[in-house]
Amino acid sequence: MRQLNPTVKFSAILLAGLIVSFQNNLLLNLVLLGLFALITAVYLPILKWLRLWLWLSLAAVGVFFSGYFFLQEKTGGGQWAGWQLSAQTIYGLQLATRIYCFGFLGASFAATTTLTAFIESLQQQLHLPTQFAYGIMAAFHVAPLIPQEYRQTQLSLWSRGLSAPWLSTRLMTPLLVKSVRWSEVLATAMISRGFTAEAPRTHFKKYQVQWFDWLFFSGLIILTIILSIF
């Protein structure tokens, strides 16, 4: 998964997710769930993986019961893998497994791609405008500073013998002022490194679409289509 081109990987996963969301197909959901839960298990530390299950289960249980109780057509039901299930249960399961499916599809992408790689690849494969790409990157690099800044403002208030409740304007105003300043300073920094949107640039790391990217893409999509039809 790590070797795959981020753009191709993203498109395949997005498309698979779309196919899942347009139908109620328990088998498809379960197959994708199993497949991508396995993939994520390979790339995520086990504790993180279990925590992912926990969070997804919380959402899935909720969705299951809303499906179970609010299904209009309560008659019917059927056999599934030798089990006698009511229509309500089947509908609930269809919805719940979908949640897992989305969760693991997304997680498998996130666990195997860095933001920098994704954005670089978007630039190189889809010709995302450079100023947009570096804007996003800069924003992501600044994001971890926000809680830090919040803490610093709090300490600064304490150091003056003042205090402020959580998320009060006293704490948030300096944060706003600073984020405006950051964007200004970062823009200057980028320009002084010779960055312009118009001029051609080269890329240190080349992202290319290779045969295994196409294999992954077509494999995943064909699998979902086959399962959708049968």
Binding site: R193, G194, F195, T196, A199, P200, R201, T202, H203, F204, K205, K206
Partner: peptide, 11 residues
């Protein structure tokens, strides 16, 4: 590398 990319230096 970012600096060099901006200068369109060969990778």
């Amino acid at each position: 590398s970012f600096c060099l990319e901006n200068q369109a230096v060969a990778p």
